[in-house]
Amino acid sequence: MIPASFEYVVAHSLDETVGLLAKHGSDAKILSGGMSLIPAMKLRLAQPAFIIDVNGVSGLAYIREEHGELRIGAMTRESALERSSLVKHGYPILFETARVIADPLVRNRATIGGNLAHADPANDHPATMLALGATIVAHGPNGDRLIPIDEFFPSFFASALEPDEILTEIRIPAPGVRNGGAYIKFERKVGDYAIAAVAVNLTLDAHDTCIAARIGLTNVTDVPARATRAEAFLVGRRITDQAIADASRLAAHESDPKSDLRGSAEYKRDLVRVLAGRAIGRAVSRARGGSH
């Protein structure tokens, strides 16, 4: 499994990266963790003529709260998200997501920016970022551009990044009062992509009425997508077991899984129902102040 030949360039700054991207256009690919790109190159599914290694660009790996947001640098490795106590305690949905991505060896290299830029509906971060209502920061020739996550996955395996833009940061609104989230993934074995997974982020008022809800789905739609009917059903409703069951059924209807080696479409759709129920339940209990 030998990749096709390419020219390798190490970029040392964002401006240099953008300059190289502008010069080489769609012949060039950014190399971050390499955990999606290199396997694809080995299979010759990807044959970029230029590889721009951005591991030498400093200042792109950080996790900090600022301006009422959690800001994560694109080059932050999954292992760093997993080890961050800010993430673990403040954003358990994100901790749960990072922990189930691939395996620990892959997580030592894989980056959150690469996971989103790859725009693979089987990847785990897209659903979680959809649920969290994240904003993507893209850096291009004219500086920074903010892209709402709802506009970031326009079509199959494509992101909203322009060919001369690099994803630099992910911004997540800090959780308000009585807000809770959860990510639950079902996989055949460690290191596999999800058979299905559901990300839920919701807010309750003092009387347990849901006042905001976002639900993201993994690997059961062509592009990373939200279960908007299930969300709309929850909002304005008092959270009861029946409401959770009904919302989960709607989420399952909104999924559009394909039969493959991970299971039949029917099985996966029912799995979405079960996982949505569990994820809503866990998010609700977190919103109420419990940890699970």
């Binding site: 190399l31 390499g34 290199i38 292992s79 060896l105 030592n108 290299r109």
Partner: peptide, 15 residues
């Protein structure tokens, strides 16, 4: 790689 375990089949030597 700098003390961290990684898969050496999923990196280029130039890295």
């Amino acid at each position: 790689l700098d003390g961290e375990p990684v898969k050496s089949c999923t990196m280029f030597a130039v890295q």
